[in-house]
Simulated scan of single mutants.
Amino acid sequence: MDLTTPPPDLYGRPRPDRFFQRLTAFGDRYSPALGRPGLRRSPRRPQARPIPPLVLAVASRRTVAEDVVELRLVDPAGDVLPPWQPGARLRVTLPSGRARHYSLCGDPADRRAYTVAVRRIADGGGGSAEVHDAVHEGTRLTVRRPRNGFAFCGEPAVLFLAGGIGITPLLPMVREAHRSGVDWRLVHTGRTAGSLPYGDELRALDPDRVEVLTDDRTGTPDAADLLARAPRGAAVYVCGPASMLAAVQRALDASPARSLHFERFGAAPVTDGEPFTVRLGTGGPELAVPADRSLLDVVREVRPDLPYSCHQGFCGTCEVRLTAGTPDHRDRRLTDAQRAAGALLPCVSRAAAGETLVLEV
């Protein structure tokens, strides 16, 4: 990987030079205004249009581990798909209308297909069960173009830590690290060897760099022990359960590693919340939101049909309208204008102790 090249944007496109981007924006804003007061947009920069979603077909489906199925998605007309980089994910709308995010685990060089792998979660929100039970070859799915909030930077030395299905965003990174000659190591943890997908493919890259630790043989691994495998000054990329990420974060400073990149599947634990109240509609029920639970989880107890996806404040699926109260916005998606208009993402947003938020849901 050419480290002099700016990292791609969220859609995998080359990122422009920021100096010239800002210089162009300055010229577009002020140069025309010298002769035409009030003009704010250059005629050579048309209004941005929304990027339409893709409608893809399931070309193949196979089991890659216990309770894990892999889907290969293609354009029905055979067209090439938008590019992506290791770490990217898709937002997939399932036949029921549920929206879920899945990491791309195929080859970025394969522009004819997107590959995702989904583990069945028995006590989840129903999305994984629907993939396993109702999505088959030929099923058409609406998909938003790949976005990347977990980009691989190609550092000279890297330790990859995967917990179970957390191998999916890391798999393309491992391939890229191997191809680029990076000094890499991977530790894949899980309940049993049969529950871990892509083991054969990973070992085929370099069996000396891949280590599998399973609870039934070695017990639950210790984060400090995992990080001790990192080369001095290495970057750590980790994806897995929230408990695994929290343990790795706590142990990082005492390890040989230098930096940490992570992605979680599932909601982060609430560690700094205050108890508050939410009212559903002007005359609706009032619900207590404890300090350690999310607003989304509390609301879904009485509104189980409220949609959600990422649980992390970046996809926007669970957006609701706030009509009263002062929220603590903690998302990474809404603009100031959207927040001022009443938009709120209940998966991460909260309120001060004693505050009451009134929502339209």
Results as ranks from 00 to 15, higher is better:
L334S: 09
E70D: 11
A109C: 13
P32M: 07
L296M: 11
R72V: 14
F20Q: 05
V58W: 05
P290W: 05
L295T: 13
S42E: 05
A267W: 01
Q249A: 15
V348L: 06
S128T: 15
A77Q: 14
L359F: 10
E66N: 13
V298Y: 03
L344V: 15
F152K: 00
V361Q: 05
G284H: 07
R44L: 13
P197F: 02
D110L: 03
R120T: 14
S180P: 01
R62Q: 14
Y30M: 11
A288P: 04
P86R: 00
D206K: 10
R15M: 07
D75Q: 07
S309F: 00
R15V: 02
P83H: 04
V116W: 00
Q21T: 00
E355L: 10
L170M: 01
P256T: 14
D336R: 11
A234V: 06
A193T: 14
V361M: 09
E286A: 15
Y198E: 04
G106Y: 00
E155M: 02
G35T: 15
V80K: 13
A204P: 08
L171S: 00
R209Q: 11
G313K: 01
G164E: 02
Q249M: 09
A109S: 15
P76V: 10
Y308P: 02
D297P: 02
L90F: 05
R144T: 15
P241L: 08
G154K: 00
G12S: 02
G97F: 03
M244C: 08
M1S: 12
P207L: 08
S103A: 13
P156T: 10
H178W: 04
R41Q: 14
P83M: 04
A341S: 15
T168E: 00
R333Y: 05
H329N: 12
V135R: 08
S195I: 06
G126T: 10
R321V: 14
S180T: 03
Q47L: 15
R179W: 02
D292I: 08
R185D: 07
